[in-house]
Every structure is written in structure tokens, then in C-alpha cells.
Simulated assay, not measured.
Amino acid sequence: MANQFEMIGTVLVACLQGKLNSTNAEQTEAQILQHINRGTNQLVIDLGELDYISSAGLRVVLVTAKRLKQSAGQMALCGISNPIREVFEISGFFNILDVAESREQALSRFNQTA
């Protein structure tokens, strides 16, 4: 899995690809937290190319959201496919996370508060 990160203005877009599970969750979390530790506090996680997410992967999303909240940051998810959507619905994540349909929609949420 090769996660891709790009800055769009002041927002970091993390595009997660393939599977996010116990095999790579720790590495993915470290990559994201490294950006946050460097001062990034606006994050879009694009799940459009993610095929599978396990409980370890869900933990990465939660840890990231919690960390950003602590630093008065903001996070939005986008590009959620139906199989991933089901996992998020079952786990109750849609009640606690900001979810947008598209990357553009997610990015527009930051521009309103910047």
C-alpha cells in the first residue's frame, strides 16, 4: 500500500490505497501523525482508493481525529465506497466524523473556516 499525501493550500490530503489493516495500520498512523506533528491541522482523508478497512484501520482514523481535535484542527473524510461505508456505519463513525461525498466538497469545508 502506497499512501499518497499532498498539500492543497493549507489542507493535507491523505489518499489511502488498497487495504488498511493490522499489517500496515501502524505505519499509516505514523505517516499521518508525522504531518500533524509538523504543524498540519487541517486534514482530508480520501478513501476513494481504499478497498478494505479493519478495526486496526478504524483505530487509525479515530486516533487521527482525536489528535487533530486536541490541536484545534479539523478533519474530513471523503470518497467512501459502499463496503467501507458499511464498516463506518456499523461502527458508528458517521455520527462522530465529518464525511463529505467528494474531495472538492471536503476541501470546501476548510475554506469556509480558514
Results as ranks from 00 to 15, higher is better:
104 E>R: 08
108 S>Q: 10
56 A>N: 01
3 N>V: 14
26 E>I: 14
78 C>H: 01
18 G>A: 08
1 M>G: 11
107 L>V: 14
109 R>K: 11
16 L>G: 07
110 F>C: 09
107 L>C: 09
11 V>Q: 00
111 N>T: 14
91 S>L: 05
32 I>P: 14
40 T>H: 02
49 E>D: 13
5 F>K: 02
49 E>Y: 00
94 F>R: 07
83 P>W: 13
97 L>R: 05
72 A>F: 10
107 L>W: 08
105 Q>C: 11
92 G>T: 09
98 D>S: 12
8 I>C: 04
27 Q>K: 10
43 L>T: 02
66 K>C: 06
43 L>S: 04
7 M>R: 11
44 V>R: 00
106 A>H: 01
97 L>Q: 00
22 S>K: 02
63 V>H: 01
51 D>A: 05
42 Q>F: 00
81 S>N: 06
95 N>Q: 15
4 Q>W: 12
40 T>C: 07
7 M>K: 14
114 A>I: 12
29 E>N: 08
54 S>G: 05
64 T>K: 07
75 M>E: 02
105 Q>L: 13
110 F>G: 04
110 F>E: 00
37 N>H: 15
82 N>R: 15
19 K>L: 15
25 A>W: 00
39 G>Q: 00
49 E>K: 13
14 A>D: 03
22 S>H: 03
88 F>A: 04
37 N>M: 06
26 E>P: 06
54 S>F: 14
77 L>E: 11
13 V>D: 08
40 T>Y: 04
23 T>N: 14
100 A>W: 07
91 S>C: 10
3 N>P: 06
6 E>N: 15
82 N>Y: 15
75 M>A: 09
85 R>S: 12
84 I>L: 02
22 S>V: 08
31 Q>L: 07
98 D>K: 10
111 N>H: 15
81 S>T: 00
78 C>S: 09
2 A>V: 15
13 V>Q: 09
62 L>M: 04
105 Q>R: 11
55 S>D: 13
83 P>G: 10
89 E>G: 09
38 R>G: 13
26 E>Y: 01
35 H>Q: 11
105 Q>F: 01
32 I>D: 03
41 N>Q: 10
47 L>A: 09
44 V>H: 03
13 V>M: 03
82 N>G: 14
48 G>E: 05
76 A>D: 08
105 Q>Y: 11
53 I>T: 08
86 E>L: 12
49 E>C: 12
52 Y>A: 02
95 N>D: 15
85 R>V: 03
94 F>S: 01
92 G>L: 04
102 S>N: 14
21 N>S: 07
34 Q>T: 13
14 A>I: 00
81 S>D: 06
74 Q>R: 11
2 A>H: 15
48 G>I: 07
55 S>L: 01
67 R>F: 05
14 A>L: 07
17 Q>E: 09
114 A>T: 08
77 L>D: 03
59 R>A: 11
48 G>W: 00
